[in-house]
Write a protein that binds this DNA or RNA. Structure first.
Length: 817
RNA sequence: GCGGAUGUGGUGAAAUUGGUAUACACGCCAGACUUAGGAUCUGGUGCCGCAAGGCGUGGAGGUUCAAGUCCUCUCAUCCGCACCA
């Protein structure tokens, strides 16, 4: 039997397609498994990261299908987004054509890898039907107050000519093109994700055990909840006069109420409204205004380089002591956290300390180390200590005093306990063509109105010019002109489109919908109830925050809108490691990519899949290795060719274990060990590499014996447990040898693990010195005396203190002298 | 700085509860078959040492009859967040 990957793979891919082998059943009484891998952006062709992603999910899907579960393993395309437009600018293709051509190509690649996706449920998020339902949800969210429009300072990417969400700004640069972002003041739509901040944080606990710790921590940090005290600082009379009483106070937030007695200056963000007022009313010198403008215009990277600031000539009164405190503007104060103003306690905060040193501001110590002194002329003291210079609180532990100080502020009515979050509302509008239009209309008479649901989708016009300049929808001659749904007068459509993360926030729900109903509804409550949550979600760690947080948010929103009845979408999350070559992530720019098509062409899909699952556990980085790929190929070839030793049969052969010789017994044991390991791997551990190693061991053991029944039984089992990994080869073997009857749950026969004798290690003081073979039922005394005899020369002249027998493992003799 | 991980042969990696460290594979070495081998098969392969033996899971301690595994400290690498008040 000669192994020909190409023939075998073509044959079975055709068979699966003709038989619709991977369509889930609509019988909702069956036990289900929803196996999902993160859907791809149709960039052109698959890369090895995709192959790894889908090889993992496919292994799960195929395993559970063998186990008789009703398996949903869908695939789609996250097909809106900038690259389609960039390609249009570069080579004049229409974004739609570019996208759908790529989808067609990539679909073929998927099926040439033998992935068992449900073909009937494929969709692309740029399909008008998908847009239609999404726009419906957007309207629902607006009506619920979860979407709003507001002017604000936004992250603007000058290269991509669009707004970015905070989450899409990486190191002050655009996450896609690395261009430094600038701030721009404009109208934008926001999802009120902050309304769910606490729930998004608290529910992370429900995911413990199912999600990687790292991802949970990243989300926790991103939400960034911190508790503290907020209070107002009031200007003194002189300052009030200067400001013409337009402002009489501003508020600040601190997580260190224990340090309030140490305030020696306060600082406002350059964007703070008081500053804006002062600039507009020429209350500052030109040189100062210039300095503030420089701070505001600096990129966020430059702004982090060095602290700078300038005094405003204003003073506030300390809330407790009434002391006058100077007000500064400082570049390190961020407008979008807290209230854009801070109380500065240089003695106990490094940042405040640096600033105070630079501008020679007073440093007032209010905490000292327990039983020690601290030199405040050199550094800040930021640890826990005892209070000094703090009225009634002197001598108290600085950590324990915090709640008392908060209580005091509340009793006096001058401040209150407050919680702050780093999480910001999610800005979703984009000034781009290739996205889902926001279904709103601007009417001079009625204001911002929703499109009527029966008019959805608001579809994109096809006749656009994509030049890279401005917003193509805005520039389109007719598209934006429409009638107001309320008053019927002339109105303008919103020309912003939605962030593509909106589509990926609910696609996993759409997959639950029966294709026969696709046109009527996004999904039904019953379908969702049956299929959700996702049992295994597999994808890259790069989505740890963005996509996974947004999808959790949408789930909670949909729950509150009554569409679904659960809190969390993904029960188990498996974040696969990156695929590396020569120690670096595969990337076009580094020129170290390996093309999946080339590997399929040379060795076949099964080889690619086997290598990828064998070379490392799924969560670890995977180093590409050409000769190991070759090794995977050789294993498959041997596995296939040695199936010639099997006598074809319709059921697993019955074997009388006691009739077998030593090699035959050993081979059976190895086969069943591999089976045991496979069950564990598919259900608990997901370390496919160890399962495959077990199968290889079993193969090696089978190969040193000649019993055809043992061969047949071995192949019956091994080709079943390997089918999720190398499906084509295993289907071929299964058909030739077992008429496709063996791809079913396998029973573990405990009899093969029963042995007459076992090997025990013998050690002295924990150091291995020998090995004995004893009867399984040997008495403790027999074993100990055999052990002592075995290592007699080591015991010579020593006194035995203790003898330890660990059943089925080892004997340890403890000696003295 | 804060948070999360990882560290085992020449390489990718095993070791499920503390119980014979290095399974499986790649590579390398030797042999067989061969006109040939980058094919196939067989055997060997942690390090030092002729050997006896010694050493060995980043390093240093500790707990234990017994530690890759548990505890303390430490070093290195990777990832995420970061002037968050």
């Amino acid at each position: 039997m000669e192994y020909s990957a190409k023939n075998i793979e073509n044959k079975w891919q055709q068979y699966w397609e003709e038989n619709e082998s991977f369509e889930p059943s609509e019988d909702f009484t069956k036990e289900k498994k929803y196996i999902l891998s993160m859907f791809p952006f149709p960039s052109g062709r698959l890369h090895m990261g995709h192959v790894r992603n889908y090889s993992i999910s496919d292994a799960f899907a195929r395993y559970h299908r063998q186990q008789g579960k009703n398996v949903l393993h869908p695939i789609g395309f996250d097909s809106f987004g900038m690259p389609a437009e960039n390609a249009a600018i570069k080579n004049g293709s229409h974004p739609k054509n570019w996208t759908y051509d790529n989808i067609d190509y990539m679909k073929n690649e998927f099926y040439s890898l033998g992935f068992s996706f449900s073909r009937k449920r494929e969709f692309a998020t740029s399909d008008e039907l998908y847009t239609k339902f999404e726009q419906g949800f957007i309207i629902d969210m607006y009506n619920k107050g979860l979407l709003y429009r507001e002017k604000g300072m936004l992250n603007w990417c000058p290269h991509d000519q669009t707004v970015l969400a905070n989450e899409q700004v990486v190191d002050g640069c655009c996450w896609r093109c690395d261009t430094p972002i600038v701030k721009k003041d404009m109208n934008q739509y926001y999802f009120k994700i902050t309304a769910y901040a606490d729930e998004l944080l608290d529910d992370l606990k429900k995911l413990e055990g199912g999600w990687p710790k790292q991802v949970l921590t990243m989300q926790e940090n991103w939400i960034g909840k911190s508790n503290g005290l907020a209070f107002d600082l009031y200007f003194d009379n002189e300052s009030l006069l200067k400001l013409s009483h337009t402002f009489e106070r501003f508020d600040v937030f601190t997580t260190r109420p224990d340090t309030v007695y140490g305030i020696s200056y306060t600082a406002l963000a350059p964007e703070h409204e008081i500053i804006t007022y002062m600039i507009e009313n020429k209350l500052l010198d030109d040189t100062v205004i210039k300095q503030i403008e420089t701070m505001k215009n600096a990129s966020s990277i430059d702004r982090q380089k060095e602290k700078s600031g300038v005094a405003l000539g204003l003073h506030v009164k300390h809330p407790l002591t009434g002391e006058l405190i100077p007000v500064w503007v400082a570049n390190f104060v961020l407008m979008d956290y807290g209230s854009g103003a801070v109380m500065a306690v240089p003695a106990h905060d490094e940042r405040d300390y640096d600033f105070a040193k630079k501008y020679d501001l007073p440093i007032k110590a209010v905490i000292k180390p327990f039983n020690a002194e601290h030199d405040f002329s050199k550094t800040a003291f930021t640890e826990v200590g005892e209070l000094i210079n703090s009225d009634d609180f002197i001598g108290i532990n600085s950590q324990k005093v915090q709640k008392h100080i908060i209580e005091m502020f509340e009793e006096k009515g001058i401040g209150k306990k407050t919680t702050n979050y780093k999480l910001k509302d999610w800005g979703v509008s984009r000034q781009r063509y290739w996205g889902a239009p926001i279904p709103f209309i601007h009417c001079d008479t009625c204001g911002l109105v929703m499109e009527k649901k029966e008019n959805l989708p608001v579809a994109l016009p096809e006749d656009v010019e994509i030049t890279g300049e401005g917003n193509p929808l805005e520039n389109h001659p007719t598209w934006k002109h429409c009638k107001c749904p309320e008053c019927g007068g002339d109105a303008l459509r919103e020309t912003d489109t939605m962030d593509t993360f909106v589509e990926s926030s609910w696609y996993f729900l759409r997959f639950c919908a029966s294709p026969s109903n696709w046109g009527k509804e996004a999904f039904s409550f019953e379908q969702i109830k049956y299929w959700m949550g996702v049992n295994h979600y597999i994808g890259g760690i790069e989505h740890a925050i963005l996509h996974l947080l947004y999808a959790r948010f949408f789930t909670k929103v949909f729950r509150d809108l009554g569409y679904i009845d659960f809190d969390e979408p993904f029960e188990r999350l498996l974040t696969q490691g990156m695929v590396l070559k020569d120690g670096a992530k595969m990337s076009k720019s580094k020129g170290n990519t390996v093309d999946p098509d080339a590997i399929i062409e040379k060795y076949g899909a099964d080889t690619a899949r086997l290598f990828i699952l064998f070379a490392a556990p799924p969560t670890q980085e995977l180093e590409w290795n050409d000769s190991a790929v070759e090794g995977a190929y050789k294993f498959i070839k041997r596995f296939f060719e040695r199936s010639a030793n099997v006598v074809p049969c319709n059921e697993k052969p019955q074997i009388n274990h006691s009739d077998l010789n030593k090699e035959e017994k050993f081979a059976r044991k190895k086969v069943y060990e591999a089976l045991k390991r496979a069950e564990d791997v598919y259900n608990e551990r997901y370390t496919f590499n160890t399962m495959i190693a077990g199968v290889m061991e079993a193969m090696n053991a089978l190969n040193v014996q000649k019993n055809t029944n043992v061969w047949s039984e071995g192949y019956w089992i091994l080709s079943s447990i390997m089918e999720p990994v190398i499906p084509h080869t295993c289907y071929e073997i299964s058909e030739k040898c077992f008429h496709l009857n063996n791809l079913v749950p396998q029973e573990i026969l405990e009899e093969v693990f029963v042995e007459e004798s076992i090997c025990l290690g013998v050690s002295i003081n924990g150091k291995k010195r020998g090995e004995i073979e004893v009867a399984t039922d040997a008495s403790k005394d027999d074993i100990l005396s055999a052990a002592k005899e075995n290592i007699a020369k080591w015991l010579d002249g020593k006194e035995i203190v203790k003898e330890i027998l660990v059943p089925k493992k080892l004997v340890n003799i403890v000696v003295k002298g």
